[in-house]
Computed example of a mutant assay.
Amino acid sequence: MPRDRDSTVRCPSYTETQNFTHGLKFFHMGLSDDPELQPLLFGLFLSMYLVTMLGNLLIILAVSSDPHLYTPMYFFLSNLSFADIGFISTTIPKMMVDIQTQSRVISYVGCLTQTSIVTLFGCLDSLLLTVMAYDRFVAICHPLHYSVIMNPRICGLLVLVSFFASLLYSYLHSLMVSQLTFFMDVEIPHFFCDPSQLFNLACSETSTNNILIYFMGALLGGVPFTGILFSYAQIVSTTLRVSSTSGKYKAFSTCGSHLSVVCLFYGTALGVYLSSAVSHSPRKGAVASVMYTVVSPMLNPFIYSLRNRDIKSAVQKLLRRTA
């Protein structure tokens, strides 16, 4: 049976860890141990996964196939959909396999890979939302210079910088996790290899790693969120100075979808943090994390398509051509 951190068994040395790293196994405890709930969970998450994949793929195909959508806003939106596909595809398929096979085992390398990819796409989501907020800021506050500032080269550079910053953050995260020492078998009270849970379950000293994780999290989470708040503060200030009601409505309507997605992403992430801090129950934290790992990527395409006539028109044209 897997041992917890309070076990009296000594933590293996670095040399011993090197010898059994390839045999180290992790066990996902999932969302529930009730056998009667497993078919329901499988069907629910399979449906949510298929809806998420379909919605985000339609956004990407619609943007790429319609010349009217060759603008910075929709370019960033298609990249956000790609990040959402990568984010949800890292966790949900493995969880469905665990439910179907009743195994819940993941190897050390598999767990480390899953941690890296989750961190990569989670960070990329945050940075792309910041870039999209900057795009709206330039469009509303500096409309005469929009085509000059947000030219295709700058847009591509912003996406590349976001990707490589996320890749660096993911690499540093994985490097710290790879330095941790575990017992031979580890039970993770989650449906994927959550980095924070791995730090809690390690039997080696993690105080320095925790400080670095919080620092990097504040840097790559707090700074983008602050940038979004600053952009919208400037947008609101500029919009309130517009004299016509129709002009105000048009300005706010162009930001409505993005603001909804920002609130959904950061609101659910903050809710997971607060729920885990209050309840002190890892299993409840795993249930709460479904909101930002599954629900948020699933709802993003609907938020943009339902509130955006251009996207709806492009999707309808795409479906007609396909039919």
Rank of each mutant, 00 (worst) to 15 (best):
T8Q: 15
S276K: 07
T208Q: 07
L112T: 13
D84M: 11
A233H: 12
M73W: 10
M53Q: 01
T17P: 09
M184D: 07
D84K: 10
A314T: 15
V287L: 06
F26K: 01
D4G: 15
R3N: 05
M291K: 04
V161D: 02
V262G: 00
L201I: 10
M216A: 08
Y232Q: 04
I188L: 13
A139M: 07
V63P: 00
F164W: 05
S276H: 04
S289I: 12
D135H: 07
R10T: 15
H68L: 15
S313F: 12
S81C: 13
T239P: 02
K312V: 06
L172W: 00
M1S: 14
L201M: 06
P143G: 10
N300G: 00
M216H: 12
R307S: 06
I117W: 11
R241G: 04
H145A: 08
I188M: 15
H28D: 02
G86Q: 03
T268Q: 04
I140M: 06
I303E: 02
M29E: 14
V295Q: 02
R320C: 13
L201P: 05
Y232N: 08
L198E: 06
V186K: 07
V161S: 04
S7F: 15
I303H: 11
P152A: 15
S13I: 03
F302Y: 14
F75P: 05
L219V: 07
F230R: 03
V9N: 13
G256L: 03
N210F: 07
L112F: 06
F82H: 14
K250E: 02
L160F: 05
L175T: 12
G156F: 12
P35V: 14
G285V: 11
L129T: 06
D4V: 10
L61H: 11
A62V: 10
M96C: 07
Y74S: 01
R309T: 09
P282Y: 05
P35A: 03
M96T: 02
D84W: 03
V148E: 08
I117A: 06
H190N: 13
E187T: 11
D185G: 11
S116H: 05
L157S: 02
D98F: 11
C193L: 09
V131G: 00
Y49V: 01
G285N: 02
I99Q: 00
V138L: 12
A288Q: 01
T71R: 15
T52H: 02
F76G: 01
